[in-house]
């Protein structure tokens, strides 16, 4: 039981973070707040990937001549890390686009509140 909890608590805490991010996206009216929620969601997913890439008693994925690479258990799996590098950069690109749209939206409606904008569109 303790092993199970030790092996899974990180998932559960990540789930809490995911839910916080999703909460921000769905419940916040302010567009910047929505963006913050989106960022939290994205980084939480990255956290999930990084956490599944970890390994007991293993070192970071940079070859140390003293530790043989033939034994796989000695090193962390580099694949999730690589993928998450990509995901982080994709996230920041998305954020850039989001801000460009935010600025354009604000210039048109002079507010960042979703409901007020919807009222103005009607």
């Amino acid at each position: 039981m303790f092993d199970f909890i030790l092996g899974h608590y990180a998932y559960w805490l990540t789930i809490i973070l995911l839910c916080i991010g999703l909460y921000g996206i769905m419940f916040k009216k302010n567009l910047v707040k929505k963006t913050i929620g989106l960022t939290i969601l994205q980084i939480s997913v990255v956290l999930f990937w990084v956490s599944i890439g970890s390994k007991w008693d293993a070192t970071v994925p940079v070859r140390d001549p003293g530790i043989p690479t033939a034994e796989v258990a000695n090193y962390l799996n580099p694949l999730p890390h690589t993928l998450m590098l990509t995901a982080i950069v994709v996230g920041v690109a998305t954020l850039g686009v989001a801000f460009a749209l935010l600025v354009a939206t604000y210039n048109r409606y002079k507010t960042l509140d979703e409901e007020e904008i919807l009222e103005q569109i009607q």
Binding site: I43, V46, L47, V50, S51, G53, S54, K55, A58, T59, V60, P61, V62, L76, P80, H81, T82, M84, L85, I88, V89, V92
Partner: peptide, 21 residues
Amino acid sequence: MALMFTAMGGIDVGFTEAVIG
């Protein structure tokens, strides 16, 4: 989060998150 990544062994991810995030 960057600290967390580093703690989990993802030093590259941690570095990237620190710089970019």
